[in-house]
Design a protein around this nucleic acid. Structure first.
Lengths: 248, 248
DNA sequence: AGTTGTGAAGCCCTTCACAGCA
DNA sequence: TGCTGTGAAGGGCTTCACAACT
């Protein structure tokens, strides 16, 4: 009965003692906020400081009604007739996503893929600090990658506690993934990004997101297959489908 | 007005001239078929040759009603009172996903991430063959990665035609992604897997799927933030939430 | 007896269309 | 006048619960 990111809608607005005040966001909205954030940073760089829902939606690749509804959950503060203030919208989204503090991340498995993730600049620039690397292979332990020493997985409890890590990335082979997840959970890690092609079994208080590269290609393959079977049709409108021009 | 994987439900069942016969699948189902396939291969390796919806659903991390409904779209042929034949279900899903033929893939951008993707064994083992590598950096052109020579992007049209490539992976920096996508589309590529943190603008007949690693972490960060604000509550049931045991 | 296949109900999310406000 | 914020309608997906079948 694993759940693997199915839980919907965050619980009701809660006002914590520390002035915390997180609104009740649909999961679909949460998944889009990072896209808006990325688009906003792009717009901010161009010097723009107010943006309409139409513009921002365009930059984020969604439709504007959806964007407005999403932002409305953030006790949004656009100005009617004008638009949204770019800087304060960035601040609000970063706050909601918990990015006001840079978050430290552990990465387990520095093989082919893990090695690349360890060096991926996009993490540091977008709110995350990879603070520790681990591998089970003794030959890899001690290796230095981008200024970080690779620890043996046995050191997980120690390092995770020291660095106050709550998010981990698993980039191990499939057969090692579950035991690594168990170890991480035992150390108190409560969020896992899993690149191993394996369903992870974790307690309900732990969030797992998965990225399976082959699955993404297989989904595309399906659509290729479908498109091929459509164009192979004798004389339907199949051939014309999807040949419109594309916009700005 | 970009779309970026929004199109729903595949069009109605079409029986092509070549005996093709693709059912009308909800997009959500398409996205899960690869998970079932992965689970089935795992079960096949253990020697199992019939599996119930309950077992398979467990292995794939979904609930059994959903699995049965998904399979029912494939003019499914389970046997009531018994289960599904593993081998023939594998064959059927592979057929529907268009994996009966190995698909050739181009990879553009052999930097940090692209380099890792080029060497990722999971592609070859799950129906895909990376047939060509490209980069815009002249210093990288000519380099050999896993037996493949890196081409300059200018050679895209030539090589894509030669190798009959219809799927491409973009692993370039964000600012190069759109022009690479344009070039790919011009060569006739109709499916793109995009790792660059940038919304791509493509014609409607081209499918794009995106993987943004930082976004995945940001979504997890939100949940960390939320969990933290819950446990900070004075004395609600916040603390107890998600402390149940977890199953098989 | 056991498991699949599926109508029906419900939920979540998207989209529309416009009232409300600057 | 122009753009946001949102009620209401609509669509797709999930889940339930059981009839159908082996």
């Amino acid at each position: 009965m694993s759940h693997q990111r199915d839980r919907a809608s965050t619980r009701n607005a809660q006002t914590g003692p520390s002035g915390l005040d997180l609104p009740d966001l649909p999961e679909a909205t949460v998944a889009r906020l990072p896209e808006y954030l990325r688009a906003l940073h792009g717009l901010a760089e161009t010097g723009l400081d107010v943006v309409s829902s139409e513009e921002l939606a365009g930059a984020a690749g969604v439709n504007s009604a959806k964007l407005r509804k999403d932002l409305s959950y953030l006790r949004s503060s656009g100005t009617r007739g004008v638009g949204y203030d770019v800087a304060s919208l960035i601040a609000k989204i970063e706050y909601v996503l918990g990015l006001s503090q840079h978050r430290t991340v552990a990465l387990v498995g520095v093989g082919n893929l893990g090695h690349a993730l360890a060096g991926y600049a996009g993490f540091e620039s977008r709110g995350f600090h990879i603070a520790a690397l681990f591998d089970a292979d003794p030959r890899r332990v001690g290796e230095r990658i981008g200024g970080l020493r690779v620890h043996h997985v046995d050191e997980l409890p120690l390092v995770v506690a020291q660095e106050r890590i709550s998010i981990a990335v698993i980039a191990t082979p499939a057969q090692a993934a579950q035991s690594v997840a168990d170890a991480l959970v035992a150390c108190g890690v409560t969020s896992i990004l899993n690149f191993a092609p394996k369903v992870l079994n974790v307690p309900d208080n732990v969030d797992v997101r998965k990225v399976d590269l082959a699955i993404e290609l297989q989904i595309l393959s399906f659509h290729e297959h479908r498109k091929a079977s459509l164009t192979a049709l004798p004389s339907t409108l199949g051939g014309v489908l999807g040949q419109e021009a594309y916009g700005s």
